[in-house]
Amino acid sequence: MSLDLDVAVTYLPKLLDGARLTVQLVVFSGLIGLILAVPLGIARSSERLWVKGGPWAYIFFFRGTPLMVQLFLVYYGLSQFPAVRHSALWPFLRDPYWCALLTMALHTAAYIAEILRGAIQAVPRGEVEAGVALGMKHGVILRRIVLPRAVRIALPAYSNEVILMLKGSALASTITLLELTGMARTIIAKTYMPVEIFLAAGAFYLAISYVIVRLFKLLEWHLARHLRHRG
């Protein structure tokens, strides 16, 4: 078959609209997820069962079920209960955008928390002991030694997670959002040119993930500045 790239060009503004929504979903869910993940990850790395039990169950649920199932449960599932439809949360849960954002944030929070737990446990023991030897309190050690160190260890895995969420955001199209994939499918429904339109959409995804990769590289470089040279 031959490619008709003019079609892709004609619909570029529409795809750009879709890409904008995709970026919004990924950035906001990534940030909310990060905020949720910090306490979760810290609690999860605790040695006390009553502290780590809750986060363990949360992470187990959200990592163990597909994002698509979670999206359907939140969007189509909750709305089947009259109690939900008459609650104060309904204006918020009625909107597919908030459902997608909420679900993606809860989903990614579980992964980020687990990344953070691994990183916290990977902080060299000697550095923590040095803090103890200096008479630092537990909270101070966490804030000034463990967390800054864990963030640097976790960063490459976190950037990976953000890129996975970029691709996961395509599932938002199943709950009527016209993000990049939803927009592409709607255009294809009119043009019957799946190859051209999906190629264009794929190019957008590549461009977005390239920007994400570069931004994280910059951040890693910035956070490692004290390790490069002093003078």
Binding site: Y76, S79, Q80, R94, P96, T176, T186
Partner: peptide, 18 residues
Amino acid sequence: IKLYDTQDNAYLDLSSGR
């Protein structure tokens, strides 16, 4: 206008009041 992947999903959203 909201577009659904399947007709069933559209009915679900009609009955939920969306």
